[in-house]
């Protein structure tokens, strides 16, 4: 990949990778760091990474960096002994996007990631599997479960409303 192609990748993919990571980590600064790290790694390997594979490489690298970060945070939380989630009924939501956002945050990390890659980026099951290192069947399972969980959450919120 040339420097010019790399710059095109920055223009084309940085928003998508950032959006994907931000939705997962919910921290702008850390999301920025992870995306930057992914691009730095890609540039370090720019001789091996082709332009056609750049998008997949970026999402894969960013995803695994994010997993490392989240694991570190979990360990830290355990040490700090903080409550993991606040109960959902303590908040109110005005529209579907907010409800979905909250529902998304209740999903396990891997389910959230596969759904985001599917809906935001339009990746195929196989491509998602390559990124999160799962088989196609496993990806389908996680997406299925995620949809069911999201639907249940939406239904519950509609009943409450």
């Amino acid at each position: 990949m040339t420097a010019a192609e790399y710059n095109v990748c920055v223009d084309t993919f940085s928003d998508g990778v950032y959006r994907f990571i931000l939705k997962n980590v919910r921290d702008e600064e850390r999301a920025r760091d992870i995306v930057q790290d992914a691009f730095v790694k890609m540039w370090e390997k720019h001789a091996q990474v082709t332009y056609a594979k750049a998008r997949s490489y970026l999402f894969t690298t960013a995803y695994h960096t994010m997993i490392d970060v989240l694991r570190r945070d979990k360990n830290r939380e355990r040490l700090d002994d903080k409550p993991e989630h606040e109960p959902f009924h303590e908040r109110s939501y005005s529209d579907l996007s907010e409800i979905l956002e909250q529902a998304l945050n209740t999903l396990p990390e891997v389910q959230k990631s596969v759904v985001l890659l599917r809906d935001y980026e339009g990746y195929s099951y196989q491509e998602i599997g390559d990124i999160v290192k799962l088989s196609e069947a496993q990806v389908k399972v996680y997406i299925y479960r995620a949809r069911v969980a999201l639907k249940k959450y939406i239904g519950r919120m509609e009943v409450v409303a």
Binding site: N7, V17, D119, A146, G155
Partner: peptide
């Protein structure tokens, strides 16, 4: 209808803030 609502729409207001810093001088 509830299942249809589970389809996420990518937000168009989220952009990486400093693309220029990522770029290489050509």
């Amino acid at each position: 209808a509830q299942y249809c609502k589970t389809r996420l729409t990518p937000p168009d207001n989220i952009h990486y803030p400093n693309k220029r810093a990522l770029k290489k001088f050509v």
